[in-house]
Each structure stands twice: as structure tokens, then as C-alpha cells.
Simulated scan of single mutants.
Amino acid sequence: MQVANITFQFQDGQPAQTHVAAQGESVLDVALNNGIQLQHNCGGVCGCSTCHVYVVKGEDYLPEISDKEEDFIDRAVNPRINSRLACQCVVQTSQELVILVPPQDFLGH
């Protein structure tokens, strides 16, 4: 089974953390399994925008963004060109990912 390293960087000043992810795991799963607070009001089924993150490195190794995901990203706080929903970022290869986690002190849609 292929594994990937995911480095989580935090806009709120927390030190970065790197964790191993198995193929088929989402960025949200890896965050939650390692004690990283990442909102997920819909339970991780692409039904809200609260697990919004920025992909700093490795976007080409993630599944293509769907229309549904793009619609929810438009509702997120401060969306950018590299915005994704962590629940939809599923590890497919052993490439390194770098994820920037925005502050989690707000509630999204």
C-alpha cells in the first residue's frame, strides 16, 4: 500500500505537523486521526465548507475538484485558487502534500 506524507501548516501560528496517510484516506481523516482540529459540520461528505483548506503543495496528485466541491468552496471564508475541502482531498499516490489550515474559530456553511 502506498503512503504519503501530509504536512499541515497552520495560519494561527501552531507549529507544522507531518503525518503519514495511506492511499484512499482523505486529508480530513488524517487530520482528525492525529488530533488536528479541523471543522467538518457535515461529517465529511462534501455537504458544507467548514473543512476548507489551502493546498500549498501536491494539488496535482489529488482528485480533480468536482462542481459540488467548487460550489461549497465559493461559500468558504477567504477562498483562493488553491482552496479545497479536506474531505475531498483523497490520497492517491505517495507524493508529499502540504496543507495550510485556516483559523478554526469561525463556522462556515
Results as ranks from 00 to 15, higher is better:
residue 53 V to Y: 13
residue 46 C to Y: 00
residue 100 L to V: 07
residue 39 Q to C: 02
residue 34 N to V: 11
residue 15 P to T: 13
residue 63 P to M: 13
residue 46 C to I: 00
residue 83 S to I: 00
residue 28 L to G: 05
residue 69 E to A: 14
residue 13 G to Y: 08
residue 18 T to R: 00
residue 14 Q to P: 01
residue 82 N to R: 05
residue 32 L to G: 07
residue 60 D to I: 02
residue 109 H to F: 08
residue 19 H to M: 06
residue 20 V to C: 07
residue 20 V to W: 04
residue 61 Y to N: 15
residue 104 Q to A: 12
residue 71 D to P: 01
residue 50 T to C: 14
residue 48 C to H: 02
residue 85 L to C: 13
residue 3 V to K: 04
residue 58 G to P: 02
residue 69 E to Y: 14
residue 105 D to P: 09
residue 33 N to P: 00
residue 87 C to K: 06
residue 46 C to F: 00
residue 62 L to S: 11
residue 97 L to G: 04
residue 61 Y to C: 12
residue 60 D to L: 03
residue 18 T to P: 04
residue 44 G to V: 03
residue 36 I to S: 11
residue 32 L to S: 08
residue 68 K to D: 15
residue 85 L to I: 05
residue 12 D to M: 07
residue 100 L to P: 01
residue 33 N to S: 04
residue 3 V to D: 01
residue 86 A to E: 15
residue 19 H to C: 07
residue 101 V to I: 15
residue 59 E to G: 03
residue 51 C to F: 09
residue 70 E to M: 06
residue 3 V to Y: 07
residue 68 K to A: 15
residue 77 V to D: 12
residue 28 L to C: 06
residue 76 A to D: 00
residue 105 D to G: 13
residue 51 C to S: 13
residue 48 C to Y: 03
residue 62 L to N: 11
residue 52 H to M: 06
residue 19 H to Q: 07
residue 48 C to V: 01
residue 24 G to V: 03
residue 106 F to G: 03
residue 30 V to F: 06
residue 55 V to E: 00
residue 72 F to T: 01
residue 13 G to H: 09
residue 94 S to R: 02
residue 72 F to H: 07
residue 101 V to L: 10
residue 41 N to M: 14
residue 95 Q to S: 13
residue 22 A to Y: 08
residue 99 I to K: 01
residue 106 F to H: 12
residue 17 Q to T: 07
residue 32 L to N: 08
residue 84 R to C: 03
residue 102 P to W: 10
residue 47 G to P: 01
residue 89 C to W: 14
residue 22 A to T: 08
residue 12 D to S: 09
residue 84 R to N: 03
residue 26 S to G: 15
residue 93 T to F: 12
residue 2 Q to A: 03
residue 86 A to N: 15
residue 108 G to P: 11
residue 54 Y to M: 09
residue 12 D to G: 04
residue 73 I to R: 04
residue 59 E to K: 03
residue 93 T to S: 15
residue 81 I to Q: 09
residue 27 V to M: 05
residue 92 Q to K: 15
residue 69 E to W: 14
residue 55 V to D: 02
residue 99 I to L: 02
residue 68 K to S: 13
residue 10 F to L: 04
residue 98 V to N: 05
residue 103 P to E: 15
residue 41 N to F: 14
residue 108 G to C: 15
residue 72 F to E: 02
residue 71 D to Q: 10
residue 109 H to M: 09
residue 87 C to W: 05
residue 8 F to Q: 04
residue 26 S to A: 11
residue 42 C to Y: 13
residue 89 C to K: 13
residue 87 C to Y: 08
residue 23 Q to F: 05
residue 84 R to Q: 06
residue 99 I to V: 10
residue 70 E to W: 01
residue 60 D to E: 11
residue 94 S to Q: 12
residue 3 V to S: 09
residue 41 N to L: 15
